[in-house]
């Protein structure tokens, strides 16, 4: 492990609340290359608190890249420039001494800033609440091995299910589209036999809420896939598109 500290200039987005106007504030830090970027912010905050100043508000939880809570845009990249990791897994050894880091919140109309680097991502959960489930209650289900699911199908469903719902796709997209996130969820259920009864109903209700929440539409730039910390594939968006189109043309319901 390296031991020489890095001297960095941080330009951190500060914003009081969703109503106020934000701006960058400059900080100088000296940080161990073994620290993660969030640990660097912890240290900075400890220093600020000691000086009686307001610490930089940012969110994180598991710090293992699985909960999807953290999400900073570092020099333009959601979760930083290293592919396939979340912000909490980004270690300072990936930066050069003397570098300037611009640290910003995820930016999208659907993700209003609550404070500094914290944004509200509840729009994503509203989409899930609109149909991101299989309508069963607890109990009364068949034996787990009653249904045969091929390894390939199960594996494809898992590829989609690995999404951590962090919102980096929305943050990376120039249109702030949530289609990678929604596509992944729709795909997981569309692929599995358990999801078939509600397959077309589900995709329609989820897309409807997605549109209501103020996310943009996909123009197939695929920036989402490039920045996704879990490498979720845009094939999932294609699958959602197909199911949605089929649903609209197949449905006997005049109103949908």
């Amino acid at each position: 492990m390296s031991s020489e500290n890095l001297d960095l200039t941080l330009m951190i987005w500060r914003q009081e609340s969703s109503q106020s106007v934000g701006s960058f504030e400059e900080f100088k830090v000296s940080v161990s290359p073994d620290a993660s970027i969030l640990e660097m912010l912890d240290e900075l905050n400890n220093r600020l608190e000691k000086e009686g100043k307001n610490p930089v508000a940012f969110e994180s939880d598991c710090r293992e890249g699985i909960c999807g809570t953290c999400g900073l845009v570092i020099n333009g990249h959601p979760h930083g420039k290293i592919p396939n990791i979340a912000t909490c897994q980004l270690h300072m050894r990936n930066f050069e001494d003397g570098e300037t880091l611009y640290i910003e919140p995820f930016r999208a109309k659907a993700f209003p800033v609550l404070k500094d680097l914290i944004v509200e991502r509840d729009g994503m959960d509203k989409i899930l609440q609109a149909g991101g489930y299989i309508s069963i209650s607890t109990g009364g289900v068949p034996d787990a091995n009653e249904m045969l699911i091929s390894k390939e199908t199960s594996s494809l469903a898992m590829d989609a299910a690995e999404c951590i719902g962090c919102g980096a796709c929305v943050a990376a997209c120039k249109n702030a589209s949530a289609m990678l996130f929604v596509g992944a969820k729709v795909s997981q259920y569309a692929l599995l036999p358990q999801g078939q009864p509600e397959r077309y109903r589900r995709v329609q209700s989820m897309v409807a809420v997605m549109d209501e929440m103020g996310f943009g539409s996909c123009t197939n730039t695929y920036a989402c896939e490039a920045e996704c910390p879990k490498g979720i594939s845009i094939t999932n968006i294609a699958r959602m598109n197909r199911d949605f189109i089929v649903a609209k043309f197949k449905s006997q319901d005049e109103d949908s």
């Binding site: 489930y133 299989i134 069963i136 289900v141 068949p142 787990a144 199960s154 594996s155 898992m158 997981q188």
Partner: peptide, 11 residues
Amino acid sequence: IDQCVAQGVPF
């Protein structure tokens, strides 16, 4: 396990 499979957990 039955419940989770029915929910679409990709075991």
